[in-house]
Design a protein around this nucleic acid. Structure first.
Length: 937
RNA sequence: GGGCGCAUAGCUCAGUUGGUUAGAGCGCUACACUCACAUUGUAGAGGUCAUAGGUUCAAGUCCUAUUGCGCCCACCA
């Protein structure tokens, strides 16, 4: 039998096999079941264009662990899967693919292009799903959703219309973040600021001299020939190209330098437009020259100024970031090219006073990293403040908890300062706005110039005719919605919300059939919502988490999830974020190929401390692979030695403590202690601690000690039962972390016809989670066993120091003043003999020490073995002296501590007792060590 | 300009509510392959827990300041 099992675990042979097995048996599916407690997670939908990276691997492993754990605990556990249409990202990917064939999306036209995207989605869109399956994700695939699904899209329209009717969606002309490359508006979150090294350019704007300023200038003018302050007003700017759109210069009214110039005119260089000097409190006197050029169409601050002072809004750029017809000679130049040329021209004409290096930060497109242009355009917005109110409350009240908790502050800070959300995008791939225009009512296409509602129809379906004038000349808005406008509905729209809509045209029989289906869906939503935990990355808190909370509260009148687990970002060993462009990617699929999925999962989890970033190197995965292999071989050993009929023995024996040998009692106590601790780690989302706990227990306690001990008496029925039971239960509790390996071994046991336990019938993943048998936990026995281990380690240490090869059998004498200890050691003599390769173990009360013996001290014990060969007496003496010194230092500290009246007064009694015990132990140790030292000469 | 995180063994990191003997993996040193596993075993070396103060009977753990690294947010042109 044993030679059927290979010496190494081969993940490739079993992963796909068991995944298929699980899927075919519908183990992943979950549905409303009032008899059970629900547990649900919605997946953060990966981009449909996505390929699995380490961030996904970490994110989804955590979710899978939670789902598998709760499923085994008997909860109805649903993991809702799906993908996100990822508007801009997907459009970019498809455009790039088309570019290879020299096709532009404009060549195809909107409809054809969208067809291409769908085609692309059909072809490549399932890659990420296949990869999630490779990872072992136990999602209920029968429920898979895509944000562009017809049903899902209805939810989006419904939400848009409801918010519009509530007055929370509006259209308007504002400065928004514009990506000139993607040629679309972006939300603030989609345009993260990055530091740039730029310049501050000081420009001279000539003043049109009026009588009033002349008077003042006389007083201020010094010398002749030199240009005075009153001939120019100098403004500082980082973006000189926008000067073409300047419509004022602003100064602070309190600024004495410019007070006399307020209201005067200047001539805008190059453009020769006459503009006014205005005053406004918002101008910072200390920055630059204290005078600022005002470009209302190209800067959000200036926009506000422009509105306030009723300035002209002159847009000097086109959507592609090139200068437009308002920029004279610079027309058609790229904005950055125009900057250089304009600077040249200004310099040539004496309008450039100086250039200073200046650090600035500018928004960058989160999809293509192009520098954002603040751009005036007509867009659609969601009014966020009213939605945020309740979202703040539920988090403050603790109805939703962040893990780690510190993210609460980040969330609240953002929520409390929330800005309106720009939701319209000028791309093609996405949900078209349910906004229609009546051509007749709109006197002309005023999209960029008016804020007027006339002719705007927001409707769930395309209106036949204009409700105002009855015209049928109606067209839909070209824009699509921000991808996140669909993602924020994910926790309930995936269940089919809203129910009972848009099926009025169906026949009656169909209608009732649909109703039934709808009511099932409604049941599922009622049952699984709010979901239990959301597992995600910090980058996405504002984009997604915060907005889901708002949407859930607004449309479901309830929070979308109770706990938010924010895991760290996966980085390389240098701390850099893993990204394709940096070329520092460790591909999870490569790791799966090389080390196996379970190794990937285990290693990833074992280094993911709650909320800390994960620094990864490939070597980390060796740990997981080695662990998998260790489990494999231990199981192999047990299988090889298992006598099937023995495992059928009465299980009651198993729980009768008094019948158990010390080692069996010990390992069972340890197992249940570990299980108890494991439960608490998993319940408190400390996955790394769970992983390390399982690792340490299995490798060092179960394999290194327990199996080594019972090896000598492996056919003993009690040992047979216990080793089998502990392994079998261990496999179950390891399963959430290492699903494939545990299933493979489980099935190996299952396939032994005579070893059949009635639970070993189907799959490990649907087995019950073991109960903590409190009565089996006994710390006293754990300590007793530990003291035997200490003896063994000491003897091994002596062997090692004396360089006695294992082939040479030695004898040893253990002297202990305590009777109980002697009894314990006597009962464990066979174990000690076995694990130290000692022929005879003599246990005595007092120590007899001769010149031909080597002695070591362990607590209050002497351990003596015959001296064979040479020993470096001086070295050993020195070592002993060091030990004495160390112990004496500790004694001194202890004494001081115990003599301190405050200590005994304030410290808990058990601590004081512990200290006292430790002190007497140390005293005994020093006494013995000194005796040993004296003997060494 | 605000906020957050990190600094512990050569390296990568754990360390719950303060309890005195600070852990793991990798690496390193020595020894050991018929006997489940060399993706292994046994033994060992290696730390004034970033710095300076403070609170406390007791500080890696709590407080304050400093230094270094990293991240997030913000409309200084």
């Amino acid at each position: 039998m044993s030679n059927e099992i290979p010496k190494q675990y081969n993940p490739r042979e079993c992963e796909d096999k068991w995944y298929k097995f699980w899927e075919e048996n519908n183990y992943f599916s979950a549905r409303a079941n009032p008899a059970k407690k629900p547990f649900s997670i919605v997946i953060p939908p990966p981009n449909v264009t996505g390929i699995l990276h380490m961030g996904h691997a970490l994110n989804n492993t955590i979710q899978d662990i939670l789902i598998r754990y709760h499923r085994m605990q008997g909860e109805e556990s649903l993991w809702m899967p799906g993908t996100d249409h990822a508007g801009i990202a997907t459009q970019n990917v498809v455009e790039k693919a088309l570019a290879k064939e020299n096709i532009k999306r404009q060549d195809l036209g909107r409809e054809k292009f969208i067809e291409k995207v769908w085609l692309w989605k059909e072809q490549y869109g399932s890659a990420i799903i296949r990869q999630l399956k490779k990872l072992g994700a136990s999602c209920d695939w029968s429920r898979i959703r895509f944000t562009m699904d017809e049903e899902y899209s209805k939810a989006i329209v419904e939400v848009f219309v409801r918010l519009y009717e509530k007055g929370l969606i509006y259209q308007g002309n504002y400065i928004i973040n514009w990506c000139p490359r993607c040629q679309t508006a972006l939300s603030d979150e989609e345009a993260p600021h990055k530091e740039l090294q730029g310049n501050l350019y000081y420009l001279r704007y000539p003043i049109v001299v009026s009588r009033k300023s002349l008077v003042v200038s006389k007083a201020g003018a010094k010398g002749s020939g030199k240009k005075t302050d009153d001939e120019y007003i100098v403004v500082a700017t980082t973006r000189p190209e926008t000067m073409l759109g300047d419509t004022a210069v602003a100064v602070n009214p309190k600024d004495k330098r410019y007070k006399h110039l307020i209201g005067e005119s200047i001539i805008l260089p190059l453009v020769n437009r006459e503009i006014k000097i205005i005053s406004d409190n918002s101008v910072d006197v200390k920055f630059g020259t204290g005078a600022v050029k005002v470009t209302p169409a190209h800067d959000p601050n200036d926009y506000a100024l422009g509105k306030k002072h009723k300035l002209e809004f002159i847009n000097v750029m086109r959507a592609d970031g090139r200068m437009n017809e308002n920029s004279g000679d610079y027309k058609d130049m790229d904005r950055f090219e125009a900057r250089e040329v304009i600077l040249e021209d200004l310099k040539e004409k004496g309008f450039l006073e100086k250039v200073e290096p200046h650090q600035l930060s500018a928004g960058h497109c989160y999809r293509c990293h192009t520098i954002i242009e603040p751009y005036l355009s007509k867009q659609w917005f969601v009014k966020m403040k009213p939605l945020a109110k309740e979202a703040i409350r539920v988090v403050k009240k603790g109805k939703i908890k962040f893990h780690p908790e510190r993210w609460t502050k980040v969330y609240l800070n953002w929520m409390e300062n929330i800005q309106d959300w720009c939701i319209s995008r000028q791309i093609w791939w996405g949900h078209r706005l349910p906004v229609y225009y009546c051509k007749n009512c709109l006197t002309n296409d005023q999209r960029l110039t008016t804020n007027d509602k006339g002719g705007v129809i927001v409707s769930r379906t395309k209106p036949e005719k204009c409700p105002e004038c009855g015209s049928t000349d109606i067209y839909q808005d070209d824009d699509v919605l921000d991808t996140w406008f669909s993602s924020w509905l994910w926790p309930f729209a995936t269940f089919g919300w809203p129910f009972g809509l848009s099926h009025m045209a169906n026949g009656i029989s169909q209608e009732s059939h649909k109703r039934l289906a709808i009511s099932d869906k409604q049941k599922d939503l009622d049952y699984f919502y709010p979901t239990s935990v959301l597992v995600t990355a910090p980058e996405i808190i504002f984009f997604w988490v915060a907005r889901m909370i708002m949407a859930g509260l607004e449309f479901m009148q309830d929070i979308p999830f109770r706990d938010v687990y924010i895991h760290g970002t996966v980085r390389d060993t240098e701390g850099k974020k893993m990204s394709k462009s940096l070329g520092n990617i460790i591909d999870p699929l490569d790791i799966i190929k090389e080390f196996g999925t379970d190794a990937l999962r285990f290693s990833l989890i074992s280094i993911t401390a709650q909320g800390q970033d994960v620094f990864l190197s490939k070597e980390r995965f060796e740990q997981g692979r080695n662990f998998a292999n260790k489990i494999w071989n231990a199981s192999r050993f047990i299988l090889m030695n298992l006598q099937p009929e023995q495992t059928k023995a009465d299980l009651c024996v198993f729980f009768k403590k008094e019948n158990l040998s010390l080692e069996n009692r010990w390992i069972l106590s340890r197992f249940y202690s570990v299980l108890k601790e494991l439960n608490s780690h998993l319940d408190s989302l400390k996955f790394n601690e769970a992983a390390n706990l399982l690792y340490g227990f299995f490798w060092h306690e179960f394999c290194d000690w327990y199996l080594e001990i019972i090896k000598a008496d492996i056919k003993n029925p009690q040992n047979q039962i216990v080793m089998y039971k502990v392994l079998e239960k261990f496999l179950r509790i390891l399963h959430p972390l290492m699903p494939f390996l545990t299933e493979e071994i489980w099935q190996k046991f299952n396939n032994q016809p005579t070893t059949k336990d009635q639970r070993l019938t189907t799959s490990i993943m649907i087995q019950p989670w073991p109960h903590v048998q409190e009565q089996m936990i006994d710390k006293k026995y754990e300590e007793l066993m530990q003291s035997v281990f200490d003896v063994i380690v000491t003897i091994r240490n002596m062997r090692s120091e004396l360089e006695i090869p294992l082939q040479d059998t030695i004898s040893s004498t253990i002297c202990s003043p305590q009777k109980k200890e002697r009894e314990l050691l006597a009962s464990c003599a066979p174990i000690i003999k076995n694990l130290t390769k000692t022929g005879e173990v003599d246990i005595k009360e007092t120590c007899t020490r001769g010149p031909g013996q080597f002695v070591m001290v362990l607590k209050d014990m002497h351990i003596v073995i015959p001296l064979s060969g040479l020993i470096d007496i001086a070295a050993h003496r020195k070592k002993t002296e060091e030990k004495i010194a160390k112990a004496e230092a500790e004694i001194k500290r202890k004494k001081e501590l115990l003599e301190n009246a405050n200590f005994s007064k304030n410290a808990p009694e058990e601590i004081v007792e512990k200290e006292k015990a430790r002190l007497s132990e140390l005293n005994e140790l020093v006494k013995k060590l000194k005796a040993v030292k004296d003997a060494l000469q």
